[in-house]
Design a protein around this nucleic acid. Structure first.
Lengths: 195, 195
DNA sequence: GTCTATAACTCGATAGAC
DNA sequence: GTCTATCGAGTTATAGAC
């Protein structure tokens, strides 16, 4: 994986993020990012291989971001807040591409399997681990799925209607709902060594 | 709008729902639904006009479904439950198309403006009206946005990982969160004539 | 309204020099 | 690694008979 390829890939991702994947030919793409159609074939292979490389890049950086957001677990519930802030900040740039690529995973395209895993399963695991500090494992799983859903859904609505303030307020409201639920819950069955 | 066109449109929607819009040429589409490329042009116009007609059809039936789901307001909170059931039932058939078309609204394509309105604004209004029976208008708006987001987000996760049972459980868990929040809330500021 | 045929164009992919 | 040139297939859209 040469430096030239890395450089090219970054520009391809940026172009797709701004313009979408659909209706973008290799010709148009190459001209827009200052390279030639020939170079795209040379570095990536077919058009599908370009898309696959983009999807892998997005999946990879999403995984990295997740790891960073959940690294500091001194205040586990804050991970949810940090996760939403990061999501909303990247919305303008990567939001629409996020959903467009997600549809590839939904249609079970093999090259998008890893992305699907990162988009849902990885997040579910992370939030389940967080909630298991406060409630029993079964409810932790349910709360995790709701939380991941809220993240995806608020991003969806934000991208469609552009109401960032409303989205932020809703995220805060959800945090209240979760805190209330956890506080009135009996807590995890086993003893937890809270840090 | 002739009966032939209506009939054709229904088949186009069905094909797009099963196969996606991208990478589908008019030739392929026409052959698959038992018509000719010429007829698509005749009834709809350009390829873009076909897509616009599909989007309008989806927006229209979504609006109809919403109206039906919120018509019976004897138990307002049940609307959320009915909404989720309807969403999950249609997931396999229309879920991926829903998100694919949503990206057109996110990119502010003019022909998708109405769809965006139906996908978010209309739902926000409906759920805000529901919650205003229980809490003050400001919190009702926030809860409505969370609720709409949960619907979109749980559908997203369901389509990506296929876990219908997990999605249903999460929807039920969210209903518990909302009920708890409403019960511990002071209620709406003005007197409400509860039915 | 429906058909066949085709014009005019763009696409992905490759050839081959440097 | 990067360029220009091009092949062959596939695309939208239209023409024109019935």
């Amino acid at each position: 994986m040469s430096a030239a390829r890395e450089d090219l890939l970054a520009r391809v991702v940026d172009y797709y993020a701004r313009n979408g994947v659909r209706d973008t030919s290799l010709r148009t793409l190459a001209a827009a990012i200052g390279t030639s159609q020939r170079m795209l074939h040379y570095h990536f292979g077919s058009r599908g291989d370009v898309l696959a490389a983009v999807i892998e890049a997005i999946a990879g950086s999403q995984a990295d971001q997740m790891a960073a957001l959940f690294a500091d677990d001194s205040d586990p519930l804050a991970a949810g807040r940090r996760n939403w802030v990061a999501t909303a900040e990247g919305a303008d740039r990567y939001g629409a591409l996020w959903f467009e690529l997600a549809t590839h995973a939904m249609r079970r395209e093999p090259y998008a399997a890893h992305l699907g895993e990162v988009m849902v399963a990885a997040q579910l695991r992370a939030f389940t681990a967080v909630y298991e500090r406060y409630v029993d494992p079964s409810r932790a799983r349910r709360l995790a799925r709701v939380t991941v859903g809220v993240g995806q859904g608020l991003l969806f609505d934000l991208l469609v209607d552009g109401d960032r303030e409303g989205a932020d307020e809703a995220a805060a409201e959800f945090a209240v709902l979760v805190r209330t639920a956890i506080e009135s819950d009996g807590g995890p069955p086993a003893a937890s060594t809270s840090g």
